[in-house]
Amino acid sequence: MHNFDIEKPSSVSEAVAALAAEGAQALAGGQTLIPTMKQRLAAPEKLVLLSGIEELKGISASGGKLTIGAATTHAEVAADGSYPALSALAADIGDPAVRNRGTIGGSLANNDPSADYPAAVLASNAVVNTNKRAIAADDFFVGMFETALDEGEIITSVEFPLPEAASYQKIDQPASRFALVGVFVAKGANGWRVAVTGASNEGVFRWSAAEEALNGGGSLEGMAPDADGMIDDIHGSAAYRAHLVGVLTRRAVAAA
C-alpha cells in the first residue's frame, strides 16, 4: 500500500469539498477499496472517510418508501425488517466482518458485475440520491464497474419503493461467494421487474423478456436469456449462467 492522507469530514458538503482535491477518493466500509490498495491497483493520495457523516447513516420508512443512508452497513440492512427480501440479500453478502464494515453506497458506487445490491436497486426501481441529484436505478448502472456518478459525486441515500412482493435468489460463486448469478424480482406499482447480477459482462441488467411474460400473464417455463454476452469463466460457462437466470427467476417469483 502506498502512503496516503486521511480526512474525516462530518458533513456531506465538507466531504464534497475534500473530494475536489487531486487524487482524493471516498472511503466507506473499505471492503473493496482497501484490498485494491493493498494490491497496489489503486493508490489514492487522500482518503475522505464517509464514516463520520451522520446524515449518511440510518434507515427510515415512510409513505411506502424505505430510505437507506449510503453509509449504512450491510449488517444494519440485514437487521432491518421493513423490506424482507432486501434484508435477506444483505444478510448473505460476504461474511460478518464484511457486513459490519461494507456499505450500500460503497457497493453501488463500485458496481461490481457480481455484487448483490445492484440487482435489488434495479428490480425495486429505487432512486439513488447524491449530493447533487436523484438518479433513477435505470440510469444509474452504466456497465461493469461503471455508474452515472460524476467525479467527486457522493451517494447520500437510496430510496426503495416498498414492493408488494419480492425475492432474491442467488447461486454463489464457490470461491468468492459473490453472485455467480443472482436474480432479484419485485412487484411494484407498475408490475414485475426482474434484475440479474453476476451473469453479464455488462453488469446488472433487467431481463425484459421475463418481465413481459410476468406482466402479460405468460409463463416463464423454459425461458432463459441469450447466452451471448454472459460471463464465461472458470466458475461457469455463459450457457450455464443463462440457464441459471431462468431457473433463479422462476424460483424468485415462486418465493416472492
Partner: peptide, 10 residues
C-alpha cells in the same frame, strides 16, 4: 473434481 454446480450441471 471439483464438482462445482457448473460442472455437475454440464
Amino acid at each position: 473434481m471439483p464438482l462445482t454446480p457448473a460442472r455437475v450441471w454440464s
